[in-house]
Design a protein around this nucleic acid. Structure first.
Lengths: 124, 124
DNA sequence: CCCATAACCTACCAAAAAGTACGTTCCGCA
DNA sequence: TGCGGAACGTACTTTTTGGTAGGTTATGGG
């Protein structure tokens, strides 16, 4: 489990894998598809994914250079993790509002506190 | 998906949730059950989990103080994420040796490189 | 009378991760 | 004669995260 987490942890890795789930893509395509990510981050994180055996790289010895990335078989199997995270995440969002405050409709989260020598139940 | 990841990312959070999956536990119990984790980390991370609505805290106004933690319903639903991560992770381990080097038995990961004006296929 | 226990908190520090800015190489194009 | 694009690399800074060492409250036990 720790191994799985260490492979996918990294601010941009999930976005990169997500891009490659729809097929082979070249560097600049991925770069354009993920706004906010710098080129350095892309090459750094995709290199880590390659070292972990998740993506494979094909260098075409042309000028201008062309490099295409694709998921290895074990990388494609990450889709189950995507599915689970997405499902839990969207379920989680339904009980959380846009500000990140938890709404928790079905249950209350409370704390017992002592106030003037009296035990009171305070909602968090 | 990002929300799901941000909730479980943190060096000790999975261990803490794992402890609470087997039922309500008090602070010192969790602390003893996870070796290597300092008390500061426990209180810091469990507080973040509480803010995210994953665990709830019950303070018993006794002396000596007693605090018990348990998973909220949405926290308990994280078990599906545990299961998926574990399954992928163990599968991943079978194609990776103890040194973290990828073995990749069913496919080869290669790179095309130019060497003395000749294209060669180099295994990574 | 002091120490241990419980469940923390605070200040300070180190390490890791991410971001910013810029350099590189080769070629075709205007 | 520069200019841009492709796919990076490198140096440096900032932000985030984790770790260390100590302090706090109150009480019962030796």
């Amino acid at each position: 489990m720790a191994a799985a987490l260490s492979v996918i942890s990294g601010k941009w890795k999930l976005s990169i894998i997500n891009q490659l789930l729809s097929g082979q893509k070249r560097y600049s395509e991925i770069n354009r598809a993920i706004p906010g990510m710098t080129e350095k981050m892309l090459s750094q994180q995709i290199r880590e994914l390659e070292e972990d055996g998740i993506v494979s790289r094909h260098i075409f010895p042309e000028v201008p250079p062309r490099v295409e990335y694709s998921l290895t078989p074990i990388g494609q199997e990450l889709s189950s993790i995507f599915y689970t995270l997405e499902r839990w995440g969207s379920h989680y969002m339904t009980v959380t509002n846009a500000n990140g405050e938890v709404i928790q409709p079905d249950y209350t989260c409370y704390t017992l506190v002592k106030q003037d020598d009296e035990v009171v139940k305070a909602e968090v």
